[in-house]
Amino acid sequence: MSKLQVSLYRYNPETDSAPYMQEFQVDTQGRDLMVLDVLHLAKEQDNGLAYRRSCREGVCGSDGMNMNGKNGLACITPLSEVVKGNELTLRPLPGLPVIRDLVVDMGLFYKQYERIQPYLQNNEPAPAIERLQSPEERDKLDGLYECILCACCSTACPSFWWNPEKFVGPAGLLQSYRFLADSRDTATRERLAELEDPFSVFRCRGIMNCVAVCPKGLNPTRAIGKIREMLLANAT
């Protein structure tokens, strides 16, 4: 059994003047490992290899990275899904500053998330029990609340690459719509007012890379479409 040829993006700001690709040979013993397992094996060869990981089951969103050209979560991506011709190339998520190796600075991504005020706003006094919500109203949150903030979508989005300061990006907009769609949220008008400019929402060109890469199978493009409709309805 030949070993898997793994090409890893390396950069240590203390010692490297520029990033470079380093080759590893990883013995998978013929198993269809997850990409994260391959990284663990590579780290045993080079202790200095840096990447984030936590839940190892696709719910915490730590290990978003670019695997043979496509963003995804290393922990739930089996080799059989990405490896071509026994080669695996791993790079950090594109478009964000690299801190070290596969670890990117998520600051811009989080800033756009915070900008949409990602929390329920309700100006009515809360009842003594829960606020009631019908199953149909609650169904509208499915496909929205499940976002794990892994940044696979926003860092696959050319509009976000060009305007990360001004375009909220697919992840932030998905969350924005999660609150716009919530029957319990009363800040619809204020939320939409924050998004009215030409960049925040309207930089989305419908390229749909976000949909193609989302490891949770969510559809930010559809959410963005809904926000556009609300903005347009509001404007007339």
Binding site: L120, A128, Q133, S134, E137, L141, F179
Partner: peptide, 23 residues
């Protein structure tokens, strides 16, 4: 407990619902 759970709901936690709208 109930107080703490209702607070979570008021904060926006998207609980699944029964037909009558309760958690």
């Amino acid at each position: 407990g109930p107080k703490a759970v209702f607070e979570l709901e008021h904060m926006g936690l998207p609980f699944s619902r029964f037909d009558n709208g309760r958690i």
